[in-house]
Amino acid sequence: MQTNWDDLRLFLAVAREESLSGAGKILRLDPATLGRRMQRLEATLQANLFAKSPQGYALTEAGVSLLARAETAERAMRGVVADLPAQTDQLSGQIRIGAPDGSANYLLPQVCAAISDDNPDLDIQIVALPRVFNLSRREADMAIAVSAPTAGRLVVQKITDYHLHLAASDTYLAAHPAIISTADLRQHRIVGYIPDMIFDRELDYLSDLGISRVSLASNSVSVQINWIRQGGGIGIAHDFSVPAMRGVRRILTDQISLTRAFYLIRHADDQRNTRLSRFAEALSTGLRAEVARLEALA
């Protein structure tokens, strides 16, 4: 019976660590899954490779024989890799990201600029729209969302939590009655989303706060933030956007605080696309770091 290199690679780890848990840590593989793979390998070879006991996995005579052949194959594989021509680690081509305009305006520009610095042959496109993107129609290579979709052939990865608070400009606060508690908000002009254009339940902040009237409303986060910055009223703002708004500060932070999350959404067919996977990892890492940096400045 013939075995493939992946089976031998797993076998080598178990043989060297003498346990499924130890090998699983090295391989980043669940021990139960690894155990099934070893059972399948034994069935394929029609031989018991391990003597299993509470102390671990010890090689049988058949296992010792396979170990010698596996190590020979390992050396051969290393030689093949060493003989391959050197390849650049840089990304190239075009990648399009769909994102709600809050992250598209206040996070993605600097994160993607840093990725571009490291990959000068890569073209990055940001499509900023206040709606859910349809990856099945290939509207984008990947998308950022504020809730995890439950339908479709999609791969969903949580990127990070982020926080939101009420915010207002110093000029607005100086010209209007003091705000000591949430009850005082009834005397103030509220900035927020157009109720029937909220495309994701996670964005219905004001409803959660019991605020029904929105005097200045837009489907765009950027418009809302500019209203707040210009002294138009009080609204919910992402903490990561506050450092970009000179003269704006958070209010009632001890009484009102919201937490939401960003998710990276990809089409299931792209899981084995190394280029997109590497970009997704760089994007997620950059977003986590940038949210943490900006929130510390809020």
Rank of each mutant, 00 (worst) to 15 (best):
L276S: 00
R189E: 02
I159P: 01
A244F: 15
T274R: 04
A261R: 11
D269A: 15
S65P: 02
K158D: 03
R9A: 13
T285D: 05
T274D: 05
V146P: 03
A148H: 02
E295N: 06
R266L: 08
A148E: 04
D118A: 14
I236T: 03
L276Y: 03
R36M: 05
K25T: 13
E290H: 12
T274L: 12
R213K: 11
A58L: 14
F133L: 01
G35A: 11
L8N: 08
F240A: 07
S212Q: 14
T60G: 11
Q230R: 15
S147N: 06
L294V: 04
A82K: 13
R266Y: 02
D89V: 00
L91N: 01
L49P: 03
A68P: 00
H267M: 05
V223R: 13
I115F: 09
A268G: 07
I228C: 01
L45M: 11
A104K: 08
G98F: 05
R131H: 10
R137S: 09
E18H: 13
L129D: 09
L34K: 06
L297E: 11
A76E: 06
F262G: 03
T72H: 13
T259I: 07
G102F: 06
I179N: 07
T150A: 09
L8A: 12
R229P: 02
R189N: 03
S169T: 04
D254N: 15
V155K: 09
K52V: 13
Y205C: 04
V14P: 08
D208A: 09
G35Y: 10
I251A: 04
E71W: 07
I124L: 15
V64Y: 10
G192P: 00
R28H: 13
E202I: 01
R78F: 10
P243K: 00
G152H: 10
T44A: 15
Y172H: 07
S116P: 02
A58H: 14
I179W: 06
R137F: 10
D196Y: 12
A244E: 10
E18D: 08
L34G: 08
I251L: 08
P177V: 01
R40H: 08
N4A: 02
G210K: 02
A43L: 09
R138T: 02
T259N: 02
D123Q: 14
T44I: 13
Y205S: 02
S257C: 07
Q90I: 01
